[in-house]
Amino acid sequence: MKGKRFLLWFTLASLLGVALSQQTPFQQRVSQAIQSGGPEFQKSMQQDPDQALCSQYRDKLPAELVPAFLERQRKLIKYPADGRLMGDWKKGEELFTNPRKGNCYACHTGDPREAGAGNMGPGLVGYGARGTSEAVVKYTYDKIYNAWASMPCSLMYRAGYHGILSPEDTAHIVAFLLDPASPVNANLKR
């Protein structure tokens, strides 16, 4: 029993050693600085490999790395069990607005009556002009669920991948953007 535990710790320690030895002195210095910020900061600064890649290339991925990056991100997209990618626009409106959920107004317009919308991202008033073809619905769903599956390292975060939006939540936001009855599309002629 004791031997087994020792073996486990030994393996972990040597794995850690290998991981650390792969860091350049500068990377070690960065890790040390992050560690000095305290354990909780250190924990939330941990990166997945693609976050690390975006940081390394200052959010501008070299062309040769793009196809594999997009492929990895596409594989992370999950869909609702019932296969419906367009849900209830009213639920979508709440999720789009909620700062703890989509928080979409931080960067996008949506309902044109919302005065405090940001403009970091493209405006979405009248987004439904694209119609509701299968391709449009899927593109919209994928973009919301995992923005990095179409644009590597974009400012838009991967809401579905990180579990901030469930597949069903994502479908509701798709409806808020595409449903002709949604206030987003009030300006379109019916």
Binding site: M45, L155, G163
Partner: peptide
């Protein structure tokens, strides 16, 4: 870049400087 909002400082304060969050 880190966290479940995939953020860093630069992506807002450099790439989109001059625009508005809310």
């Amino acid at each position: 870049r880190a966290g479940d909002r995939d953020m860093n400082c630069a992506i807002c304060h450099e790439a989109y400087a001059g625009r508005k969050v809310r």
